[in-house]
Computed example of a mutant assay.
Amino acid sequence: MVDVELRGSAHRIKKCACDLLSIGGDLVDDDDSWDLMGNDLRLKSTFLYCDFNRMISSAPRDQKKPLTELANKLFCSIEELDHAVKSRSVPLTQDRYNEAAVILQEVMAQMP
């Protein structure tokens, strides 16, 4: 049963990372788009947090530190992206998105 839960968490992490990667081309400077992007970012980061927590808790001792470091790097990047979205600056958001995209690619590569 635990294996099924961990596979589900890994799948959701990949799915959320993929979804977040897809929002990069959607930068449109209108109020509704900014609100939608911010809401989507916060929702996906909540799922990511819960699933990373489950994965780290269940990981073997030697895998906990690398997973924790990856999660910390991802959430720091998402927080900076969220701040940029709240500022509604297209250049800043694009810059933070590009930084986050590199980490999201790394997350997708690390998940089984």
Rank of each mutant, 00 (worst) to 15 (best):
V2A: 12
D3N: 11
V4K: 10
V4Y: 08
R7T: 08
R7V: 01
S9P: 03
A10V: 01
H11C: 09
K14Y: 04
K15L: 15
D19R: 07
D19T: 09
S22N: 13
S22I: 01
I23R: 00
I23N: 03
G24V: 03
G24S: 09
G24C: 08
G24H: 05
G25V: 02
D26E: 14
L27T: 02
V28T: 13
D29R: 01
D30S: 06
W34H: 05
W34N: 07
L36Q: 11
M37D: 01
G38S: 14
N39D: 12
N39K: 15
D40R: 04
D40I: 05
L41H: 06
R42H: 09
R42L: 07
K44C: 08
K44D: 09
K44R: 12
S45E: 10
T46P: 00
T46A: 13
T46R: 11
F47A: 04
L48H: 00
D51P: 03
D51Q: 05
R54Q: 14
M55W: 04
S57I: 06
S58W: 00
S58V: 03
S58I: 01
S58H: 13
A59Y: 00
A59S: 09
A59V: 10
R61I: 14
R61L: 13
D62L: 08
K64R: 13
K64M: 11
P66D: 11
L67D: 02
L67T: 06
E69F: 09
L70V: 08
A71N: 05
N72Q: 14
N72K: 12
L74V: 06
F75A: 02
S77N: 07
S77D: 06
I78Q: 00
I78L: 15
I78H: 00
I78M: 09
E80F: 12
L81N: 04
D82W: 01
D82C: 09
D82K: 10
H83Y: 08
A84F: 08
V85S: 00
K86I: 09
K86A: 15
K86D: 12
S89C: 06
S89W: 07
S89Y: 08
V90A: 11
P91D: 05
Q94G: 06
D95E: 14
D95G: 05
R96E: 05
Y97W: 12
Y97P: 02
A100V: 00
A100R: 03
A101R: 06
L104G: 01
L104E: 03
E106A: 14
M108T: 04
A109C: 07
A109Y: 07
A109W: 02
M111T: 06
M111D: 08
